[in-house]
Design a protein around this nucleic acid. Structure first.
Lengths: 136, 136
DNA sequence: CTTGAGCTTCCCATAATGGGAAGGTTTAAG
DNA sequence: CTTAAACCTTCCCATTATGGGAAGCTCAAG
């Protein structure tokens, strides 16, 4: 099948399919006589794996390794787990960061009248570095 | 003072100070005879405001508006609050996304032996779209 | 044969940060 | 006075992941 069909089936945009091929995340597709990329159901399978990995927030670098491990039937699961664990740590770091931002922002926003008057705790909070106080 | 000193005082990299000037987030600095940018304590103040805003995750577009409102002593606080509220919504969206990823990833990772054996629930989870089941 | 849909490659844009080059300036030391 | 270090200038490039759009070729149907 052509790239359009595989894009539809895998729910991965054809632009992205080409890019993944460039980056060596998926194998280079065969070509028809006229140069069209040719795919099989197997490629759909791989692309779904890639898509799911991206949905879980793995970087392309990670996805590349994951696909490679997925295909290697002799992989040690420790390697997979290591990648996932690092990713979890990274996500937890981001989570904390966002929670911290939210905590400050909500505090400031709750105290802002939000009317015609110019006085605004949000701007004051941005002006002075009160973040530490806010979190006490 | 020169850009290096103001960078030190504001904790904003000089590369970034120039970029912020380009983007109209901070006013164009005056120049010395030889073309060096010249700053005052006031500029440090603005840059700290920018930095703090970035630390709270506001986009440069938002920061530009916030700086503008900050300088306009007749601003309605409603405009500031509106920007902050939208940002809070966006952060909450991201928070949910990350929490959802983490929930799935932790489940998969907890069930992975992480040893020499090749069988791996993480890879299986990426292969089949089990996310919905996982969240039940 | 023409037309439209689908494919190809190549360039550009996004958002924010920063590295590095090539070259001018200032300052301090010799 | 000269020289070298440290600092400044602008300009280009890289990052991460995704996608828009152009120019041109191909395929299928009328």
């Amino acid at each position: 099948m052509n790239i359009g069909e595989v894009a539809e089936l895998s729910q991965v945009n054809s632009k992205m399919i080409r890019r993944y091929e460039e980056q060596g995340i998926i194998p280079k597709a065969g070509r028809s006589l006229s140069g069209y990329r040719q795919y099989t159901q197997k490629d759909v399978h791989v692309l779904r794996f890639v898509k799911r990995s991206r949905e879980l927030g793995f970087s392309m670098k990670d996805v590349k390794q994951l696909v490679s491990l997925w295909r290697n039937k002799n992989r040690p699961s420790s390697q997979v787990k290591s990648i996932a664990s690092k990713h979890i740590e990274e996500l937890e770091r981001k989570l904390q960061e966002i929670q911290s931002m939210l905590s400050t922002l909500k505090y400031l926003t709750n105290n802002c009248h939000g009317d015609q008057r110019p006085d605004c705790p949000i701007l004051e909070g941005l002006e002075f570095n009160k973040s530490k106080e806010l979190h006490l």
